[in-house]
């Protein structure tokens, strides 16, 4: 099982703040997981944005970051705090 969270503009575009996915062997990295989500249809193309940011287990990382069963991952637009 993998927990995926979406924030801000992505949360609104996808109509959900997160979901649990059954673990699949081809979720080899955050990028591979994103590719899987992009296949769901038009609304999901928001995750194809070039300035998308992501996190694995609450740490910023790149799309090449490997992921594992049990992880909490997140996709979000460029952060705008401060």
């Amino acid at each position: 099982m993998i927990r995926v969270q979406y924030f801000a503009r992505y949360r609104e575009a996808l109509g959900r703040d997160g979901e649990q996915l059954d673990w699949q062997a081809d979720f080899s990295s955050l990028g591979a997981l994103r590719d899987y989500l992009l296949q769901r249809g038009d609304a999901w193309q928001v995750l194809a944005e070039q300035n998308l940011m992501c996190a694995r287990n609450q740490e910023l990382c790149g799309l090449d970051e490997p992921i594992a069963d049990g992880d909490e991952v997140a996709f979000f637009p460029t952060v705008t705090g401060g």
Partner: peptide
């Protein structure tokens, strides 16, 4: 670093 690395979003 806060502005570019901390997960906040303004609406």
């Amino acid at each position: 670093y806060l502005k570019t690395r901390a997960p906040f979003w303004k609406r």
